[in-house]
Design a protein around this nucleic acid. Sequence first.
DNA 1: ACCCAGGTGGCTT
DNA 2: AAGCCACATGGG
Length: 304
Amino acid sequence: MLTSFIPRGSTDLLKDGLLMNRIVINDVRDIDLEHVFECGQCFRWVPAGDGSGDYTGAAGKYAARISLKHDGVAETGHCSLQIEATGGDEAFWRDYFDLGTDYGAIKDELVRNEPEIENAVKYGYGIRILRQDLFETLISFIVSQNNNIPRIRKCIEALCSRYGEYIGEAFGREWHAFPEPEVLAEASEEDLAALRLGYRSGYIRAAAERYVSDRDCGHLPETREEILSYRGVGPKVANCIMLFGLRDVGAFPVDTWVKHIMNDMYGFDENDMKGMERFACDKFGELAGYAQQYLFYYYRDNGR
DNA sequence: ACCCAGGTGGCTT
DNA sequence: AAGCCACATGGG
């Protein structure tokens, strides 16, 4: 009986031929889908396109449609997170959206330590740092270097549809998982080049090979030093991978936007990366990664 | 046509 | 250590 495979608490429904999990998580706070998915931490989620405010995208091996309903009194900011997915139980999605972390407390502490950050925190109040797959963040942020976000998204979609495991059809399109490391490691140069990844295709293949061998030795990269030793990974990309892939929330990626911010707000020279990181560490300590996300999102949207 | 993008590697001072 | 520059591609 098929239904015996459905996780407890979810409802099956057949849609486009796929068996879907429906998960509802009540009493969620400090979340806004646009903030979460547009703040630059991930590249596979897009608005559902029907004006609903929902997002569709993929996490790990699952495609999903995510919807947020404001329930009860607006004041409290309590929401119900509704997930329609091709897989993943409630525990998986709770983890993915980092629902075990109290972002209200984090925001309070950031503003207490640095009142200047208040506008940014208020603007991106619903940001949550997703718990993403390490290999996916490694490759995604190699793609991101010297690249713009719309094109990064295209490159990653191209990688997924060419090399990712087929998930199925849902929400009006076909879905593929992010490619497995060994599949990318064995891709040919010509095929990778055809995806228009530019000069990064060599980095991607080499990183995949390296990742496979690391993994097979039973030691995935976990320190800044190890991550930096991947070709195509410099200080900025390494910090993104630590923050988004390894969940080192003390990491403070300094990109072009953060450079502008640090120059505007504190007068740092745009080349003084060391100084900026030291400042972030002193000011925000282990919360520097969160601070960086609020600042990045605020300044990218409200520009300068 | 132009500058830029969630930069990095390599080479030269 | 610090300053250049090429890199592949396409968004605006």
